[in-house]
Amino acid sequence: MKQRGILVRDFSHYYGENRSLNNINLDVYRNEILGIIGPARSGKSTFLACLNRLNDLIPGSRVEGKILVDDQDIYGPEVDVVALRRKLGMVFATPVPLPLTIYENIVFGVRLLGNNDRGELDRIVEDSLEKAGLWAEVKDRLHTSALKLSGGQQQRLCIARVLALKPQYIMLDEPTSGLDPISTMKIEDSLRTLKKDYTIILVTNNTKQAARVADRTAFFLMGELVEIDETRVVFTRPSDKRTEAYLEGKFG
């Protein structure tokens, strides 16, 4: 039996009056890559924002139901939201390095914890960049602006930045949507390596990407979870007609 890391139960989310997620039930297992696919506006990004409570920033955002992360109800009264966001690192569609140097981007979150030990920071930078597959390319210019990196490098920097926080989960929201095939491949490679140590949730617009890297795949449609199963099963014998239609490119 696989260990469950995240449990989502009867979970709904609203933007003001509009329901964006409707009664979602799913589990995320430890050390898997869970792919989330679905057409535009189906609630994929909203779902991720609910998991690390980034939705708190949006006025009018409201939730129903429960999400447990490592057995803790993340909408409970005693939750340390900052700690939660460190536990579930987030990588966005457009890489947004902060307007700082490569080095400072990576240690940004670590410094927030009050850790300023130069030796340790150096070690964290090398380690995170190594894991994100970027170390070799930038090790000679750590102290130049991160905004000068190429798109693909910036996205791997954003992954490294999340890794520096030692999260347990990594959530990626269409991380390769703006990237060329080679950069995309590099990121997919790192994800396969990373899953040994982390649990990964990968939202993607590209169903082929889910087929390539996800262990299991969930299909979202208009705020509903239509289907979740082993990737192989979802792609070859989907149990729902709508999944089949989506995968055949009939909508979305």
Binding site: N52, L54, L57, V82, A83, R85, R86, G89, M90, F92, T94, V96, L98, P99, L100, F108, G109, L112, L113, C158, R161, V162, L165
Partner: peptide, 23 residues
């Protein structure tokens, strides 16, 4: 996106303002 990025990294609003927005 800068603010989101910083907050997703566990910064508070004030830390985000001081370390990201103002610079």
């Amino acid at each position: 996106s800068y603010r989101e990025g910083s907050i997703a990294l566990g910064a508070t609003r004030w830390q985000t303002v001081r370390m990201v927005v103002l610079p």
